[in-house]
Measured scan of single mutants.
Amino acid sequence: MATGGRRGAAAAPLLVAVAALLLGAAGHLYPGEVCPGMDIRNNLTRLHELENCSVIEGHLQILLMFKTRPEDFRDLSFPKLIMITDYLLLFRVYGLESLKDLFPNLTVIRGSRLFFNYALVIFEMVHLKELGLYNLMNITRGSVRIEKNNELCYLATIDWSRILDSVEDNYIVLNKDDNEECGDICPGTAKGKTNCPATVINGQFVERCWTHSHCQKVCPTICKSHGCTAEGLCCHSECLGNCSQPDDPTKCVACRNFYLDGRCVETCPPPYYHFQDWRCVNFSFCQDLHHKCKNSRRQGCHQYVIHNNKCIPECPSGYTMNSSNLLCTPCLGPCPKVCHLLEGEKTIDSVTSAQELRGCTVINGSLIINIRGGNNLAAELEANLGLIEEISGYLKIRRSYALVSLSFFRKLRLIRGETLEIGNYSFYALDNQNLRQLWDWSKHNLTITQGKLFFHYNPKLCLSEIHKMEEVSGTKGRQERNDIALKTNGDQASCENELLKFSYIRTSFDKI
């Protein structure tokens, strides 16, 4: 039985969820670079991206490699990797027998973001014989899940209580170790020597080791999670996991709180800001991140802002960003909400898709409305799209047979046209069989910064309504002859009103 693990408890099935942008060198404390989270699957090609990484700022997932063999891993080693800020997950990587050479110096898994409450997941690794993470000293947050690894031993010899604050939620089941077939031998045991430290858990006094050649490092209890030197002297209180010299914040392997210019500090002093819960960055760093993602459509890219001495992905609820200094300031009234469309555009074809934009005031991208039916549609669209004030790209209304009016965009005031449909149009209306009105132009103002209007096959939309939009939106004169079809717009509506004058002759039985 794995020490510190839980057996036999019912657990939810383990679901495996399925960018080499360097964020800056980590400095003297770390020998390499800070790398983003990685999802490495199918083959070993991307694994080489770990070569210079000291910190993975995010998670590391290595999974679904069915053609790899043990010899493929023999020359692979990433000794610079010290810390993973989120979680480490391995799933069905064939041929991998140990992690001792792959990650010989991995010391800390912070667990800032977890995989279903777990910071370390080893699942269905069919050839893994031992973990071998002999320098792993601290899992700051989260638990361990090690399950269905039929060859995995050296679990009962690990004292997880020396690595985690609590072992109650560890789930370590259905491994070879369960069948008591392992016969784990710690260093020196074969020669009758006791080389590794022994600890007591559940009444068992057991030597602690990761492999037959690597003991588990056990520091004096007084050192807590700070770690200790090879001689057993406690590291500085700002260290986490390990250090090369005692009581020196510049000799830590990793930091308990924050890293700044080669030393570990309790908090980031001005003019620095907390970033990702582990390091200090200056304003320029946060500003660069903001600008890199301002026009990016890459998933996970955030326009970072500053709030409460932190550089964070977005302002919290009730705050909006001051564009001059990136500071989050309290909103006066309802907060603006910028919604970034991942692929640059979004099609609204149902109430469900409209709900995804609920509360958005600025759309960074283009909207395509293609709704053919739905219950209580006008009210639903207004509830979900009615706060949109600005669209950076274009607005396209296409084959939306259920629409009679666009009044559900009740606050839309600006279409920038930074991206144009077919390279020309910022407003595009095609084949809307029941569209009769755009907006009530006596109450609604709309500016279209650039781009043209396109109207074709809107049989109940009168040309007068379209011409009014040209005047109000500032697009009059931009359109070419064929942009607004004269014969297919309003051709099934009563669009022309003329005053009919009647004269009559009164007659009676005795007068003409």
Rank of each mutant, 00 (worst) to 15 (best):
P316I: 08
E151M: 09
P313W: 15
L136G: 00
V108F: 02
Y118N: 04
C315Q: 04
P79N: 12
P269C: 01
E231N: 06
G183L: 10
R145M: 05
G203L: 08
E314Y: 04
K67Q: 01
L131W: 02
H214R: 06
S161I: 05
D72C: 14
P316N: 10
I84T: 00
R145L: 10
C293V: 05
C286S: 05
H48D: 05
D159A: 07
R256D: 07
R110Y: 03
W210A: 07
S237M: 05
G241Y: 08
S143K: 12
E207W: 14
D86I: 02
E130C: 02
R141W: 10
E207Y: 05
S98Y: 06
L260A: 08
L240D: 08
H48W: 06
R297M: 09
F78L: 07
V108S: 08
S244F: 14
R113I: 14
F66V: 13
M38P: 01
V281S: 02
L60S: 00
N295C: 05
R298Y: 14
N138M: 13
V253P: 01
C286N: 01
V34P: 07
T45I: 09
H290C: 15
R92A: 09
D39C: 15
C53I: 01
N242H: 12
A190V: 10
L128C: 03
M321E: 01
C264Y: 00
E97S: 05
C328N: 01
I62V: 14
P313A: 07
K176M: 12
N135A: 12
S296R: 05
L155Q: 11
T229I: 09
T199Y: 04
L96I: 04
D75L: 09
W210M: 11
R69M: 05
T194R: 09
I158H: 08
L90T: 07
C243N: 00
C228F: 04
H236E: 06
M38N: 12
L50Q: 01
D165M: 03
H212Y: 13
L114W: 02
C335K: 01
V218H: 11
Q61T: 11
Y171L: 08
D247P: 02
F91R: 08
K217T: 02
I163R: 03
C335N: 08
L63Y: 08
L50R: 02
F73V: 06
K310I: 09
N309T: 10
L29F: 02
K191I: 14
Q299Y: 03
R256T: 11
T267I: 02
L164E: 01
H290S: 06
G241N: 03
D165W: 08
V34I: 03
N257G: 03
G183F: 15
V218T: 10
T85I: 06
N195L: 13
A190C: 06
N308C: 02
T45W: 14
N325A: 13
E97A: 09
P31N: 15
K80Q: 07
Y273A: 07
V200P: 14
I146R: 01
G203R: 10
M137I: 09
S98L: 01
R256N: 11
T320A: 09
A156V: 09
C186S: 08
T68A: 12
D177V: 04
C234H: 01
M137T: 08
P336L: 07
L96F: 02
E49L: 10
N179M: 05
K292C: 11
Q299H: 13
H59G: 06
E151L: 12
K176S: 07
C239I: 00
Y154N: 09
G333W: 04
K191Q: 05
P246Q: 15
K67E: 14
Y134L: 09
F285Y: 03
C53V: 02
K80S: 09
L327T: 08
E57Q: 10
